[in-house]
Design a protein around this nucleic acid. Structure first.
Lengths: 160, 160
DNA sequence: AAAAATGCGTCAATAAAGCTGACATATTTT
DNA sequence: AAAATATGTCAGCTTTATTGACGCATTTTT
């Protein structure tokens, strides 16, 4: 039984029973996602501290490598952050020689973003431990199972 | 062909080809995890701003509800953050009446954490949109498929 | 009993990464 | 010519994390 203070209001009652899956609420998968993602991003973090960069830099380097020539606006849309947030990170990556900007060939207001060779190497180095982790998690899984997992992850996204 | 400056060093060469899955590197799943998690945490964020809380509060409320009676040390271990980081967030939740502390019955140095009724209600309200999202992502999936996804997510965790 | 270790709280300083709002510049569209 | 767009930047603020140091109560070890 919960211990109670003298003014035993219902709102301050102590609850001792663990909150478990009930009705639509799926606490198990909620936690699995939390732990999976927590450990997933911890891999590149260790590489990044050596370069003096953080997670924000990682995301920028990743997407610019995945889609060279993307504009600043594209990147903002993908990352769902503000222009001012991106600015600092992007500037550091450009100054360090990992990313370069080229004025858009049609619309010269645009700044198209490209990785340098160093930028590509960094993206690959960061992806490696994450891919190893994914491969380990898929160990022994059939192609159908892999597709199911991908379908689930796609379904988790907000469709726009 | 990439445009080049006059001092054409290999390191600053512009790369125009998209970086795709190669060898062990699985960029597709890396991105799926990024987008899935980004949207997954965006749901509770909207509820939290109303209470003046953030993601850190969410995590604490969640785990204390899942395992009432856990100690501060347990929580630090679960969240993998420092004591000082937790302190502020925990204090706010206690002051707001969502969580209460009880001295450990055996070891009185310990502070065992319990949710109040209000704390439980908050945890449920935050879990609801996330569960809806999970349910939607699983739509039409067999029990076996659901288990496969959970196995994958478990495999993503660092084993300790 | 004294000393050491443990669990927790707190003070202070710092950093990363985001935010809002305002404004400037170059360029394109109307 | 005027308006809209793409980008950059200044200034200030917030949240969430960090490290290091220290204090207090309690338990364990010597």
């Amino acid at each position: 039984m919960p211990r109670q203070t003298s003014q035993n209001a219902a709102k301050t009652e102590l609850l001792e029973t663990p909150l478990q899956n009930a009705g639509i609420i799926d606490f198990e998968v909620i936690e699995l996602l939390f732990f999976a993602y927590r450990d997933f991003v911890s891999d590149p973090d260790q590489i990044l501290v050596k370069s003096g960069f953080g997670r924000a830099h990682h995301r920028v380097v990743h997407f610019v490598n995945r889609e060279p020539g993307m504009t600043v606006a594209d990147l903002l849309e993908t990352l769902q952050i503000t222009k001012q947030s991106l600015a600092r990170v992007l500037k550091q990556l450009i100054d360090s020689g990992y990313i370069r900007q080229v004025a858009g060939p049609e619309d010269r207001r645009q700044r198209k973003l490209y990785p340098t060779r160093a930028g590509r190497d960094l993206a690959l180095a960061l992806a490696e431990p994450q891919s190893r982790r994914i491969e380990r998690a898929f160990e022994g899984a059939s192609e159908a199972t892999r597709e199911s997992v991908k379908r689930f992850l796609r379904g988790m996204q907000t469709e726009k």
